[in-house]
Structure formats: structure tokens, C-alpha cells
């Protein structure tokens, strides 16, 4: 199963439409959480939002996750050890308030198991790859340093 999520805040029709057009050529169930938008798609079933446990169930059941370049999604993929394909939202298409998802994607592509489709026409190649590397949790020294700084401040 392919789980597609665009987060809860904003619609992302470019990604949902791309998945709709790819669906006939993918022999795989596609579950889409499409955000606040009312659309009619021919080949996929989409729900606007999911309760947290329903979201987690779909996340766990998926072979691969396709998503916007949201930090929450990236962290979820790391926790769930899933291969993640991200399409960054772009300001020029009105998909977010600025281009911070482009910056996130540039950084996240260095993370194991995070694969960036800079344009939607790169999705098919990634989705047809049966051996996409999964993301994984690797709490590094930078994470520990941040926690220690906060703990020192809180305890003082």
C-alpha cells in the first residue's frame, strides 16, 4: 500500500493530482490524506484528515510513504522505519507561505531513507523501485546536545 499525506494544514493538489494520474499504472492500493480540499479524483480515494491512531495505522501498513516535505512526516517515517518520498511545496504554486519546504528537502535528502521528488514526474521512478531504503531513527550527538541544554536551563 502507498500512503500519501500532505499534512493537516494546507491542501497540496499538485501532489494529489499526480498520484491520481499515476494510480492506473501502479498495481498497488493508494490511501490518500489530502488536507482541506474538496476534489474529485478518478483513481484514488482521499480523506481530508485522519485521527492520529488512524493515521498511524495507515503509516504502519504502508510499503512506502509519499508526502509533502513536512518535518512531522519525516520524523514519523523515521519512527516507523518506512521509505519516504517527499515532494516539497513551492511558494510559486501557492502551496505554502514561503519556500521553507525546499530548504527542508535539500537537507532531508541527505538523511537515509528520505527520497526527494523535486518535481512530480520523478515520482513514478521512485514508486516503482521495490528496494527503496527505509528511514530510521538515529538520534545523533546534536539531538543529545539540544536536550542537555534545555535540561540544564529547566533545572537551574
Amino acid at each position: 500500500m502507498i500512503f500519501v499525506t500532505v499534512g493537516t494544514q494546507l491542501a497540496f493538489p499538485r501532489l494529489v493530482e499526480a498520484m491520481d494520474s499515476l494510480a492506473p499504472d501502479l498495481d498497488e492500493e493508494i490511501v490518500v490524506q489530502c488536507g482541506p480540499v474538496k476534489g474529485v479524483w478518478n483513481n484514488i480515494v482521499a480523506v481530508q484528515s485522519m485521527a492520529p491512531d488512524e493515521f498511524s495505522e495507515n503509516f504502519a501498513a504502508a510499503r512506502v510513504i509519499v508526502a509533502h516535505a513536512g518535518i512531522g512526516t519525516i520524523l514519523s517515517a523515521k519512527n516507523a522505519h518506512k521509505p519516504l518520498i517527499i515532494v516539497p511545496r513551492q511558494f510559486k504554486f501557492g502551496e505554502h507561505r514561503n519556500d521553507h519546504q525546499m530548504a527542508t528537502a535539500r537537507y532531508a535528502q541527505k538523511l537515509a531513507g528520505v527520497h526527494v521528488a523535486w518535481e512530480t514526474d520523478e515520482l513514478m521512478g521512485l514508486l516503482l523501485n521495490p528496494d527503496l531504503e527505509p528511514a530510521h531513527v538515529d538520534p545523533g550527538p546534536s539531538h543529545a546536545a539540544l536536550v542537555n541544554r534545555l535540561r540544564d536551563f529547566i533545572d537551574q
Binding site: L146, V147, R151
Partner: peptide, 28 residues
């Protein structure tokens, strides 16, 4: 809810030895 919350959860070791009260925007 979303990425903000996930990051807060990753920082719990900084404060969970105290009495913590959590606020968020998404039910469940």
C-alpha cells in the same frame, strides 16, 4: 499538532523528570 508536536516529543528527556502538563491542538 504535526511536526511541532513531534519535535516537542523528541525533547521530552529535557523535562519529563518534572511535573509536566501538555497542550496541543489535535484531539487524540
Amino acid at each position: 499538532g504535526g511536526g511541532h508536536w513531534q519535535q516537542l516529543m523528541l525533547l521530552r528527556d529535557a523535562f519529563q523528570h518534572h511535573d509536566v502538563f501538555y497542550l496541543t491542538t489535535l484531539p487524540g
